[in-house]
C-alpha cells in the first residue's frame, strides 16, 4: 500500500511542460514552445499590469490602491536614491520592473491552486536558473555598459580599492576582478536556490503528511500533524522569503549599478 502511494516527487513541480500543443514552435531553429513557465510569466506580467493600472488614476488625493502602487514606486525610488544618488533616478523603470516582476512571480508561485489534482498547479519560474540567470546577466550587462560608457578604461580602477599598497595592486586587481565577475552568478543563483529550496521543503513536508496518513491514523497524527503545522509556518516564511529575495535582487542590482555610476 505504502509502496504505491509514496510517489510524491518533490522535484516534479519544477517540470516544464509545453502548453496548448505548442511544443513544435520554433524560431530560427530554436524551440520556443509556450510552456507552463511562460504561462506564469505572462500571468505575473498581466497581474503586475493590472496592479499598476489601479495606480494610474492620478488622483490628487490617492485611494488605497493608488496609494499602494505609489508606495512601491516610492520604495524603489528611495532605494535608488539612497544607493546611487541623483543619478539613480533613470534606473527606476528597470529596477522597478525587476523587483515587481520577481515579487509577483515569487508570490504567485506560492498560490495553492485547487486544481492541483488535475495537473494544474502554480509554477514558480524564478526557481529556474535559466530565468534568474538571464535577469542577472541583463543586470550585469547594464553595469558593464554604464561603467565603460561613463568611465571608459578608468572603470578598471573599480578593482583597485583606495589605499592599496603598490606591490599588492596586481594581486588585489585579480581578486577584485574575480569577485566582480562572480556577481551575476551569485545574483542569479541566490534567487533560484532560495525559491527552489522553499518549494522543495514544502513538497517534502506535504509528502510526509500524505504518506503518514496513508500508513494509518496513528502515524498520521504522530508525523503528519506536526508536519502540517510546520508547513503552515514555512508557508508564512516563504511569503517573507518571496519578498526578501525580490528585494535582495533589486538591492544588489542597484549596488552594482552604483559601482558603475560612481566607481568607489
Amino acid at each position: 500500500m505504502a509502496g504505491e502511494t509514496a510517489k510524491v516527487d518533490p522535484m516534479h513541480q519544477f517540470t516544464i511542460e509545453p502548453m496548448f500543443g505548442s511544443e513544435g514552435w520554433e524560431l530560427a531553429g530554436f524551440n520556443i514552445a509556450f510552456t507552463n513557465s511562460a504561462m506564469w510569466m505572462l500571468i505575473a506580467a498581466v497581474a503586475l499590469w493590472a496592479f499598476m493600472l489601479g495606480g494610474m488614476k492620478r488622483e490628487l488625493v490617492p485611494g488605497r490602491w493608488q496609494m499602494m502602487v505609489e508606495t512601491f514606486t516610492g520604495f524603489i525610488d528611495d532605494l535608488l536614491e539612497a544607493n546611487i544618488g541623483k543619478a539613480g533616478k533613470k534606473y527606476v523603470p528597470y529596477i522597478f520592473s525587476l523587483f515587481m516582476f520577481i515579487l509577483f512571480a515569487n508570490l504567485l508561485g506560492l498560490v495553492p491552486l485547487p486544481l492541483a489534482m488535475v495537473g494544474l498547479h502554480a509554477f514558480t519560474f524564478t526557481s529556474h536558473f535559466t530565468i534568474t540567470g538571464v535577469l542577472a546577466i541583463m543586470t550585469f550587462a547594464i553595469v558593464l555598459i554604464v561603467g565603460f560608457w561613463k568611465h571608459g578604461f578608468h572603470f578598471f580602477s573599480l578593482f583597485v580599492p583606495h589605499g592599496t599598497p603598490v606591490p599588492m595592486i596586481p594581486i588585489i586587481f585579480v581578486i577584485e576582478l574575480i569577485s566582480f565577475l562572480f556577481r551575476p552568478f551569485s545574483l542569479g543563483l541566490r534567487l533560484f536556490v532560495a525559491m527552489m529550496a522553499g518549494h522543495v521543503l514544502l513538497e517534502v513536508l506535504a509528502s510526509f503528511v500524505i504518506d503518514s496518513a496513508n500508513a494509518g491514523i496513528g502515524w498520521g497524527l504522530a508525523i503528519g500533524g506536526p508536519s502540517f503545522i510546520l508547513m503552515l509556518a514555512i508557508c508564512a516564511l516563504e511569503i517573507l522569503v518571496a519578498g526578501i529575495q525580490a528585494y535582495v535582487f533589486a538591492l544588489l542590482a542597484s549596488l552594482y549599478i552604483n559601482d558603475a555610476e560612481n566607481l568607489h
Binding site: T35, A44, G55, V92, P93, L135
Partner: peptide, 23 residues
C-alpha cells in the same frame, strides 16, 4: 531557448509598458 525567449518577450513587455510607461 523557450525559457529565454519568453522571458525576454514578457520581461520586455514589463519593462517597456510598465517600467517605462506606467511608473
Amino acid at each position: 531557448s523557450s525559457q529565454i525567449f519568453w522571458l525576454l518577450v514578457i520581461f520586455g513587455f514589463v519593462f517597456f509598458v510598465i517600467g517605462r510607461g506606467m511608473v
